[in-house]
Amino acid sequence: MKDICIVEFTSNLGLKEPHPGKEPGVNRLPDWLWRHNLHKSIKAKNIIRVDPPRYSSIKDPETNILNADSLVTYAREQAYLINNLISADKFPFILGGDCSILLGTAMALKQKGNYGLFYLDGHTDYMDISLSETGGVGGMIASIVTGNGADKLTNILNLSPYIKEENLWCVGNREYDEEYENEIRKSKATYLSLQKLRTQGIKNAVQSFLLEVESKKLDGFWLHIDVDVLNDLIMPCVDSRTPDGLSYDEFNELTSYLFQSQKLTGLEITILDPDLDETGQYTKDFVAAITSTFNKNFNS
């Protein structure tokens, strides 16, 4: 079994301000998870933190994206670290941050080979900048890492695309807006909305993904977990709330199959905002679920 390394990417660069003058609180997520015993529960060999450049609410005039230059600077640091960890046969267990932390990881994966991405999220995050009101990369990161959008972000170090579009599985979206869903539907990615996931069955869906990883002879796959994939009643501490979502039974079943795979290269957890969980109960429940399922199944 690979040694686990917890990596803390304390970024909120991909989100808009929740209120004028207030930064999103997701940059404090690693400390919040530490407080709720995730670090103790995951048997990690070491813990590394990389802090991002300062947050700004001003859009980049060239791309109309928030913090574009800072995201590029940060992604290069992230990629260097993740590349080294994968080269040393470590398992990066990444704690965000918002979903934009995927940018550096995806660059590192491209530098290492040809990887799949299992994008487990209550939204597709496959939005074109023209549809974005906020300019936040968090809402378009799955599209960006597959090579769509401004060169400044999609082609850092001439690596575009970091993940091939056909190697992306976008799973769990429940924002059923025609214009929003059409972006992912017209791509080469595999799109399983929450409705489709339940219709197909969790086990069948994950087995199809893992079979594809094998048949394509991919070097591995990355697991992105945005906690807003969970039902809003059990995980309301997110920036973009939507009714419905996975129960913990569904979430644990799905992740257990992925954790067992020898092809799982690393994972990231994003979007839980400590500011929105005053008692910490939602976080405690999440930590109990993810650590128990991970420890029971990881590469078993």
Rank of each mutant, 00 (worst) to 15 (best):
G135S: 11
N252G: 12
S261V: 11
D232E: 13
K22F: 07
E212Q: 06
E214L: 12
L276Q: 08
T270Q: 08
Y257K: 06
M140E: 06
D232H: 06
G138C: 14
A106H: 03
Q195I: 09
Y162P: 00
Y80G: 01
G96S: 08
K203G: 06
N299I: 14
F294T: 02
T190Q: 08
M127D: 07
F259N: 04
S292V: 00
G97L: 14
D89Y: 13
I6M: 07
G138H: 11
A150W: 02
T134E: 09
S57P: 07
T270N: 14
S261G: 12
T134S: 13
P52I: 00
K188E: 11
C170D: 09
K2G: 04
I269A: 00
Q262K: 14
R49K: 15
F298L: 08
Y115C: 07
D232R: 15
I141A: 00
T154R: 09
Q111W: 06
L153F: 08
L103P: 01
R185W: 03
G136I: 01
L159V: 05
I82G: 00
Y119E: 06
A75L: 03
R198H: 10
S70W: 09
S193F: 15
I101A: 05
K296L: 11
I47E: 09
K217P: 02
A68W: 02
L211V: 11
G136D: 04
R35F: 12
N148G: 10
E23K: 12
E17F: 11
K59Q: 09
V72M: 09
L223M: 07
I225P: 01
L95R: 00
T242L: 12
N299P: 02
V287D: 02
L109M: 15
D285V: 00
E214G: 11
K284I: 07
Y119C: 07
G135F: 02
N114E: 15
S143W: 01
K263T: 02
I271D: 00
K112Q: 09
H39Y: 10
K284C: 07
E183Q: 12
N231S: 09
D125W: 03
N114F: 11
G135I: 03
Y180M: 04
N27K: 13
H123Q: 13
E212K: 05
S215G: 06
L272Q: 01
E133Q: 12
T190K: 13
L120D: 05
M235Y: 04
G266R: 02
E268I: 04
S256Y: 02
G25I: 07
E17K: 13
L233C: 10
S247A: 07
H19F: 10
G149A: 13
S41F: 00
Q78M: 11
N173D: 13
N182Q: 10
F118K: 03
T279I: 05
I86A: 05
D219F: 05
A88L: 15
I225F: 14
L85T: 01
F286E: 03
C99W: 02
G21M: 13
K152D: 03
E17C: 13
T283Y: 06
L15Y: 04
V227L: 12
I202D: 04
E181L: 13
L13H: 05
E77M: 15
V206C: 10
